[in-house]
Design a protein around this nucleic acid. Sequence first.
DNA 1: AAACAGGTGCTAA
DNA 2: TTAGCACCTGTT
Length: 334
Amino acid sequence: MTAGEPAWAGEQGVGETEPGIRETTVRLSGPVSLKATLECGQAFRWKPAVFPGRPGLYSAYRGVMGRVAVIVGQASPVTEEILVAWDASFPLPSGRSASSGPAGGGDPSQAYVERLVRRYFSDGDDIRAIEESLARMGGVMGEAVAHGRGLRILTQDPWECLASYVLSLNKNVPAISMSVEYLAACFGEPAGMGAFGFPAPHVLASQEVSSLRESKCGFRDKYLHDAALKVASREVDLDLLGTLPTEEARRELMRIRGVGPKVADCVLLFAYHRLDVFPVDVWIARAVSRYFMGGKDVTPRAVREFGERYFGRLAGYAQEHLFYWIRDVRRNEP
DNA sequence: AAACAGGTGCTAA
DNA sequence: TTAGCACCTGTT
C-alpha cells in the first residue's frame, strides 16, 4: 500500500476494515428505525456515517453511547436487527475486555456492547403494542405513528442528557450538537473511533465558567456550570432520582438553574425512561392546541397536563411521535 | 440583513 | 399568579 494512504485503504477482505474495529449484530425484541430514533432530536451526538465494510446498508450513524463510541446501522428502514461496529483497541469500561477469562466461553467485550445497545435502545419497550395503541387513538396520531414507525425512546445517560438539554435552551439542534461535541472533545475521555465521551460532572464543575463558554454555549455557561456543581456534589443526586416518584424527581431537577419544566421532563423521559411524562416545547404546544384543543391559546402547563392525562403511560411516545411528525412533515405549513 | 431558535429567570403588576 | 422581556450565537 502507498505511504500516506490510510492503513485500511487497501483492505478488501470480508470482515477486514480498520484494525481494531469489530462488528456484531443485535436483534431487538421489536422494530427499530435508526433514522426516526436518532434524528427525532432526543439525542444530540448521532451523525450519518458509512458502516465500516458495509457501504450498502440502508442507514448508519456514528455516535457515543455512554463511554463507548459506535457506528450503528441497519439494512432497511425498519428492522429488528442493529449492526454495531466498535473500536476494540480501546478497553471497554467493563474492565475485562479480552484478556481475562478463558477463550471459548463467549466474548466479554462483544457481550458488553450488546448489553449497552439493548439498554440504550430500550429493548424492553413493546414497540408494536405502543404504536398500535397510539395509532388507534385516532386523529393525527395514525399519521404521526405511520411516519415515525420504529421510533424508540432511548435510555440515555442522565448526566449527559441533563447537560445537553440545559444547553438546548432557545437553540436549534445543530447549535446544541456543536456545543456538546466541543465539550466532549475538550474535556471528555477517549471513547474509541476518534470520538470522546461526554465529560463527567466533576470535570466540568472544576472548569472556569469562561472556559465552558468556549463551547459557544452563550449565556447557558453558568447554567451548565451550576448543573455540574450540583450533580458532582450530589446536592442533586442523579442516582437517587431514579428511585423517586416522577413529581419529586422533577422538582429535584428544577433546583438547577436553567432547568425548568421542559428540560426536567426531557431528562425524565430520555434518561430515566419515565414514559408517562409529556415534555412541552413550542412545537408540541402548537400541535396539541391545533389538533386536540380546537386551536385555543393554551399555556404550556395546560398542554402538559392534557398530554399526560390523554395519553397516560404512552405520553412519552405520543410526544416524540408528534414532535417528529410535525417537524418533519408539517415544517413548511402555517 | 434580520429574525429565529425544542426555555428560563427576573421583574413588575 | 402571570405577563413581558432579555439572553449568546449559529443558522436560515
